[in-house]
């Protein structure tokens, strides 16, 4: 376990599981985001995200964690700084080919389309035929445990199942980076725990990097290898912490003293964030 204030955290973050000199998948350098009304959403964001890691952004509301995630997804412009994808191909205009999937706070499914068509959507938007990708669509539906529900409509599903469809849609293009913006916040605790368990399983099978935004200390400790804590006004990183517990993590981990110790650690860091 080690945590350091952001000022001491430079480009290469100490990583227990991987060799420290590895090239990051995405690198945010000095990224600022100021809204037109003058609100500073992000100030000097420096963050390296490494291949295959599970990283959480944790912080009080208004700390810019969702904004940061959207910038990683390429969904929002930033005011200054640089986003770099050292491992990706760049197109003719120099734009990196971002291979990302995004799971929003809401399942954001098309109510008029079946589960299959909802998951097929990213491919449809890239002009890929249904016959070409239907095996892949079925594969991700099986991965999230909804193989039997390909022909159901979203309204026929429970909240947790809708979220699973949303995860399947994000994974269907085999993204290198899966971004999740408080995906389980609106669900009940039982469903949330079940989905957390399954998410770790999916993560290990899909072999992608996950960036997970949450405001739950427990969720972040249970899921991640690395927790980045952010503070508000202006939104910034104030520290980070490595959760050095092996996977697969089970209910035993949830009940262990190690888990509680991590939660206390993160909680203390969050208190620092709230005070600053």
């Amino acid at each position: 376990m080690n945590y350091a204030p952001a000022s001491l955290t430079t480009g290469a973050v100490p990583m227990p599981d991987v060799e420290p000199r590895r090239r990051p998948l995405v690198r945010a350098q000095h990224v600022d985001k100021t809204y037109s009304n003058g609100t500073i959403a992000l100030k000097n964001l420096n963050l390296d995200v490494y291949p295959h890691e599970f990283i959480s952004l944790l912080g009080p509301s208004g700390c810019g964690k969702s904004t940061a995630l959207r910038i990683f997804a390429g969904l929002g412009a930033y005011t200054s700084g640089m986003m770099d994808w050292p491992q990706s191909m760049h197109d003719a205009t120099g734009k990196p080919e971002r291979e990302v999937g995004f799971v929003f706070q809401e399942p954001t499914l098309m109510p008029w389309a079946t589960v299959f068509d909802n998951v097929y959507l990213p491919h449809r938007l890239k002009d890929r035929r249904k016959s070409e990708v239907q095996d892949r669509v079925k594969e991700v539906l099986d991965l999230v445990g909804l193989g039997q529900f390909a022909n159901a409509y979203p309204r026929e599903l429970s909240g947790g199942m809708k979220m699973r469809v949303s995860v399947a849609r994000a994974l269907v293009t085999r993204p290198k980076l899966l971004l999740m913006d408080e995906p389980f916040a609106a669900l009940d605790e039982i469903t949330r725990n079940r989905l957390s368990n399954d998410l770790l399983d999916i993560w290990s099978k899909a072999k992608c990097t996950v960036m997970f935004v949450t405001h739950s200390v427990f969720e972040s400790v249970f899921l991640s290898q690395r927790i980045v804590v952010m503070a508000a006004r202006p939104g910034r990183i104030i520290g980070e912490l490595t959760v050095d517990a092996p996977y697969p993590r089970t209910k035993e981990f949830r009940l262990s003293s190690e888990y509680s110790a991590y939660c206390r650690e993160v909680s203390d860091l969050l208190d620092v964030a709230m005070r600053s």
């Binding site: 999230v144 909804l146 599903l157 079940r194 368990n197 399954d198 770790l200 209910k251």
Partner: peptide, 8 residues
């Protein structure tokens, strides 16, 4: 570690 998905 993994639960069944029958949460309808």
């Amino acid at each position: 570690a993994t639960a069944s998905v029958d949460d309808r």
